Computed example of a mutant assay.
Amino acid sequence: MPTVAIVYFSGTGHTHLMAQAIAEGASKVEGTTVEVLRIVGEQIVNGRWKDDATIEKLNNADAIVFGSPTYMGGVAAQLKAFIDAASGIWFKHGWKDKIAAGFTHSSSPSGDKQGTLLYLATNAAQHGMIWVNVGDLSSFLFGKDDGINRLGSFLGVMGQSQLDMSGKEAEIDAGDRLTSERFGQRIAEITKRWVR
């Protein structure tokens, strides 16, 4: 039975909604267990991230999906602190040959989100993981309006929402949600094939 772990930071809730949609998609694959692991500020003490329970769940997972909002063209500091803390696992190649994937969100249509995905893919490559791409063409190429891969990202899923300073609850575009869900299902299907 494959396990997909989604580890992410979300500042305003948009990345959290994407993580939930990925989890829902992965859960559609029979026999898949999904762990949703949100990085929070309380896990960081004196600039260092630490949470042994989260690390144990990631060590036991067959796939790890990394997620972060894109801040100033890169991953959020909170996720970077987590990644730095996992360097001991890297040294032992503890995540080698696990399936990996990534997702990000920003308020700008570009926001240099590609930089965040490249960082996440590079981190996975350094761990010796096997990266899964989106696998969906942009529906706009075919004149469809379902919003699947509406931002045309292939390395990982990108989401975008208008900047809202009113304090209302986070929402994501229906196409970004659908793309995230399909991505989760793809990751789980590939993981299931890989662990066989």
Rank of each mutant, 00 (worst) to 15 (best):
L155R: 10
L151R: 08
M158E: 14
V7R: 09
T104A: 11
S107L: 09
I55T: 14
G102Y: 05
A81K: 04
A76Y: 00
A170Y: 08
F183C: 00
K144M: 09
F66M: 05
I39K: 08
S138C: 09
E169V: 11
L118K: 12
R177S: 10
L151C: 08
G135S: 07
E171Y: 09
K168M: 11
K168W: 08
V34A: 07
A5S: 15
G128V: 04
G135I: 02
G41V: 12
Y8S: 07
A121S: 15
F103V: 01
A101D: 03
K92Y: 12
K28Q: 13
I187M: 00
A53D: 15
S108L: 14
Q160R: 13
H105L: 12
I148T: 15
Q160L: 01
T12V: 12
Q43V: 07
G41T: 14
V65K: 04
G152Q: 06
I190V: 15
I39W: 09
G41E: 15
A85I: 05
Q20W: 07
L155F: 05
A26M: 06
T70H: 01
H127K: 00
R186M: 00
W49I: 08
N46D: 15
V65E: 04
E181G: 03
K144N: 08
D136Q: 15
R38N: 11
G47C: 06
G67Y: 05
D173H: 12
T179N: 06
S180V: 09
L118E: 14
Q114F: 13
L58I: 01
Q43K: 11
A61G: 04
I64G: 04
E181V: 01
L118S: 10
G31N: 10
Q114H: 14
V65P: 06
A5V: 05
T12R: 13
G143C: 10
L117T: 09
N133A: 13
A101T: 07
D84K: 02
Y71S: 06
Q162H: 12
S110I: 13
I39N: 02
T15Q: 10
A21V: 06
V29P: 05
S138A: 08
G184H: 05
A86L: 10
L151M: 03
L117V: 04
